[in-house]
């Protein structure tokens, strides 16, 4: 199966990015072939709605699961509309999180936050 992870750099030794929508890159990883592809997140510098656009990228890459420390409600709505499961990462090591996911140790992400939408308040 294919999974997606927001990451800080384009290598397997990198860390999981704490932000989903504004993560610089995504890892698209095939758990069977171990094939790793890093893609740019073209939503990272969006004025607004980055979660929606980033989620669109994840959906378009036809992954089955997203591993992320947190996810906003708009992004979650897009991800869930595509029947992609969201799992909560633990710690920031990419490799450890992939391993934990493979062993079925990552919990489903339940707390969907209302987003950090800029405004004047």
């Amino acid at each position: 199966m294919k999974i997606a992870v927001p990451v800080d750099e384009k290598n397997m030794e990198t860390t999981v990015c704490p932000s989903f929508g504004r993560s610089p890159f995504f890892l698209i990883y095939d758990t069977e072939s171990k094939n790793a592809t890093f893609i740019d997140n073209n939503a990272a510098a969006s004025q607004g709605g980055s979660g929606i656009k980033a989620a669109q990228t994840i959906v378009d890459n036809q992954v089955s699961a997203l591993l992320t420390p947190r996810c906003g409600e708009n992004a979650a709505q897009v991800i869930q509309a595509a029947n992609i499961k969201i799992y909560k990462t633990a710690g920031n090591s990419l490799q450890e999180n992939i391993d934990a996911f493979m062993e079925g140790k990552l919990p489903v992400l339940n707390e969907i936050h209302p987003g950090f939408h800029g405004g004047r308040k």
Partner: peptide, 19 residues
């Protein structure tokens, strides 16, 4: 859309009214 208020999933266009 500059504000990313739209997404296309499956064969459905989603509109995010608040965005």
């Amino acid at each position: 859309c500059k504000f990313n208020a739209l997404a296309y999933i499956g064969d459905t266009l989603l509109v995010f009214e608040e965005v």
